[in-house]
Amino acid sequence: MAIQKFKLPDIPSIAVQISTSLFLNGVRMSLSISLTINGDARTIVLEDPRVTLLDLLRERLQLTGTKKGCDRGQCGACTVLVDGRRINSCLTLAMTVDGAHVTTIEGLATGDELHPVQAAFLECDGLQCGYCTPGQIMSAVGLIAEGQAAGDPERVRELMSGNICRCGAYKGITEAVLVAIEKDATTSKERDAA
């Protein structure tokens, strides 16, 4: 089944402004951190130590693919990879990941080519409203890297249970992860053989 691109209604492009007007205890704070986000090294001046990684991505770096569902580590919508590991970015203060490599949903596809997990989610209809989807996909990528599920659907379900999908796309999600695991295993084998 071919993936069809389609056009969205025209929405005027929106400029992003990063706020620079916060003071800490009356003193202007300038907390600088370095992050490599989706392969791009960035130096980020934080005006406020309270900023979570999630809000940094969404409100200051225009990387809004990562979603806020509960802001308390109870839904998984904000899942990103930090140094290759899936975590809840809502409970991670940005300051604490200084120096880390962060991968978000925006950094998964290579050019026009979808990551196998993304392709599998599409094919298996592992999504409905799409809001939890970036978190589900990042979680699945993390899960595959962890290598604990093998091809066992029950282990996949358990290890994907940190990502709530209110629409109830779980069946497709599990199928997608299994497809991606299989694909990953095949790719690894080919790589090893080569």
């Binding site: 069809q4 949903i105 596809a109 979808l114 392709a119 599409l122 999504l127 799409g130 970036p134």
Partner: peptide
Amino acid sequence: RDGLLKVTG
């Protein structure tokens, strides 16, 4: 049809 946008964020 909107799946591509949704899986890529």
